[in-house]
Design a binder for these strands. Structure first.
Length: 555
DNA sequence: CTTTTCACAGTCGCGCGGATGGGA
DNA sequence: TCCCATCCGCGCGACTGTGAAAAG
């Protein structure tokens, strides 16, 4: 309940939990300052996962729902779960908990069983859904037991979630965008784990886009054959491996082809116009254990409500289309003339994203980025590291790379030489000199996590090895400019595009035409989380080419 | 009328092969 | 002259959303 949109709904208005009540202790136990204005539920589209979060005495992150009527199988099957976990089962640290061995989540008919998950209830599995508590007020971050999971591209997911994410499904399979990407921590470096994702129905309704809103209509179709589980190709592997780099599911494809037989391991079969919730499963694999019982009792499950989506065969909401075009490098061809993008009011555009950052050296005012971060995700008092604010006085423009091309070699030497001793950047966070344009946008994978640095209680790898940064992998070759150098850099390589002339002065007529032509949302949307442009001098040859994205897919 | 399917154009990364340049 | 490394261009495949046609 403390995560993402739910926390926001909680803060602003009661959740429609279909009868579920907010536990009083939840409201009392979490100071308001720990909530974030992220990812409100789309209008007319109440947040799903109508569960409430039992607060765990002495900790947080109780994972079992109080009501699970329309939940994913594991959740729904836990409907009768009592909020207070057995103290003996509490994990060290008191965050999250595990059921005693052998104890099943009681009750719960399986409304939406996941074929891959068997009966949809993993005995002893830890369902972690409500991660944000006083100790971990971080959106896109969850903790269960010792395992910590961060949704890498949380800001982007939140942005999509705000408009009700849609995912295209095709016969041959369509990749998700945004795709699921996580950072794991707290694993036993030498133990072996499997990591997988499954996608389960959120509710039992058929959805329809009507009058600019998603509305429920009719009942969901019954069980559908087909794969619902995607096992990460690196599985099984050591905890060290999983913690070394982000765990991405970019190759996961969604299909509506029930008979899909080829690429079955890469495809998940869904039904159009149904709402789904991806879940991340982390399973410790003991020696001699096979794959058959998977997920098993050793599985810990993480659910990020922001990743909910409705499967469609064609986009319904123009805002979603525009977000996809703006952020998905593969859709670059649909980004229109750069000038036209910036003759509209910035706030009206969904996201101003240059088609080519090389030619368009988009510039952000240095003050803009941190400012937006602070506004969108106000940092709570607890957002300090080593007792100091994460944003250093002298280098206020810290940029947290939420994702990094896995294949990109890390110039760790240079990084370490410059910043290794910086106590503010212990997780591979590199300083990023924000350029000075109000329009710049980075490809989605560079969307900075609003809380790029883990909470103080985070346990990062002691010292990442070269190429293995643990948590936040820095953007390659980004180096901070010493104070005073920015101007010079601007003069040299930061050309102000002619098109940036009037961002704030919107020509309404022109904008309307543009909206019609480009299906741009007529109402204000989120351009705020667009990260800064990259300096062509410091990045790859094509600053807008999303090297990480393509690099990843090229694997 | 709604939903699905298909062909299309656009973009990009990757791999291959040829051209080029430096050193032995 | 030969060998090796690097650079460059081209073709291919993967991937995207669009829009029209087909299907239900």
């Amino acid at each position: 309940m403390l995560n993402g949109a739910q926390s926001q709904s909680f803060a602003k208005e009661p959740l429609d939990l279909q009868g579920a009540k907010e536990p009083a202790e939840l409201k009392m136990g979490v100071p308001e300052r720990f909530y974030f204005p992220d990812a409100p539920a789309p209008e007319g589209c109440p947040l799903s996962l109508p569960y409430s979060a039992p607060m765990v005495p002495g900790g947080f992150g109780g994972s079992a729902p109080a009501t699970g009527r329309f939940l994913s199988p594991a959740l729904s099957s836990c409907s009768a779960y009592r909020p207070q976990p057995p103290p003996a089962a509490a994990q060290p640290g008191g965050h999250g908990f595990a059921l005693p061995p052998g104890e099943l989540y009681p009750g719960g008919g399986e409304l939406y069983p996941s074929p891959a998950a068997g009966d949809g209830c993993y005995p002893g599995a830890v369902q972690h859904v409500f991660p944000r508590g006083p100790l971990y007020p971080v959106p896109g971050y969850q903790l269960s037991g010792k395992i910590q999971v961060m949704l890498n591209n949380y800001p982007l997911w939140a942005k999509f979630h705000k408009h009700q994410t849609e995912m295209i499904i095709t016969k041959q399979g369509r990749r998700m965008f945004p795709f699921l990407s996580f950072n794991l921590s707290g694993l036993d470096p030498v133990a072996h784990y499997r990591v997988c994702v499954d996608i389960v129905l959120v509710d039992q309704h058929h959805w329809r886009y009507q009058g600019g809103k998603w509305v429920q209509c009719g009942k969901a179709e019954g069980n559908m054959p087909g794969n619902r589980l995607y096992i990460h190709p690196d599985s099984p592997n050591t905890g060290a491996h999983w913690m070394r780099q982000e765990v991405s599911f970019g190759k996961l494809k969604l299909t509506n082809n029930k008979g899909a037989s080829n690429n079955i391991t890469q495809m998940i079969v869904l039904q159009s116009l149904h709402k789904y919730q991806p879940r991340l499963h982390v399973t410790e694999v003991k020696e001699g254990e096979g794959d058959e019982a998977y997920p098993s009792g050793n599985t810990q499950t993480f659910i990020f409500p922001e990743t909910q989506f409705i499967a469609v065969t064609a986009y319904q909401n123009a805002d979603i289309t525009q977000l996809k075009i703006d952020h998905n490098p593969f859709a670059k061809g649909f980004r229109d003339n750069f000038d036209s993008m910036y003759t509209t009011a910035e706030g009206d555009r969904v996201t101003p994203s240059p088609p080519d950052a090389t030619s368009c050296q988009q510039l952000l005012p240095g003050s803009r980025f941190p400012s937006f971060l602070h506004e969108q995700y106000p940092l709570p008092q607890s957002r300090y590291y080593n007792g100091e604010p994460l944003q250093h006085k002298e280098h206020p423009r810290w940029y947290f790379a939420s994702q990094q091309p896995p294949a990109a070699p890390l110039d760790y030497g240079a990084y370490e030489g410059s910043y290794g001793g910086n106590k503010y950047m212990p997780f591979g966070v590199k300083a990023f000199p924000l350029p000075a344009s109000p329009h710049a946008t980075l490809p989605y994978y560079q969307e900075p996590h609003p809380f790029g640095s883990p909470p103080a209680a985070w346990q990062p790898p002691a010292k990442p090895s070269p190429g293995a940064l643990g948590w936040f992998r820095p953007v390659r070759d980004i180096r901070p400019l010493p104070a005073g150098e920015e101007k010079g850099k601007d003069a040299e390589g930061w050309a102000e595009p002619a098109s940036v002339k009037s961002v704030d002065s919107s020509d309404s007529g022109l904008f309307e035409a543009e909206c019609k032509r480009r299906r741009v949302s007529p109402y204000a949307s989120s351009a705020e989380s667009s990260p800064p442009a990259r300096n062509g001098d410091l990045y790859d040859k094509d600053g807008g080419a999303d090297p990480g994205y393509y690099g990843f897919y090229g694997n």
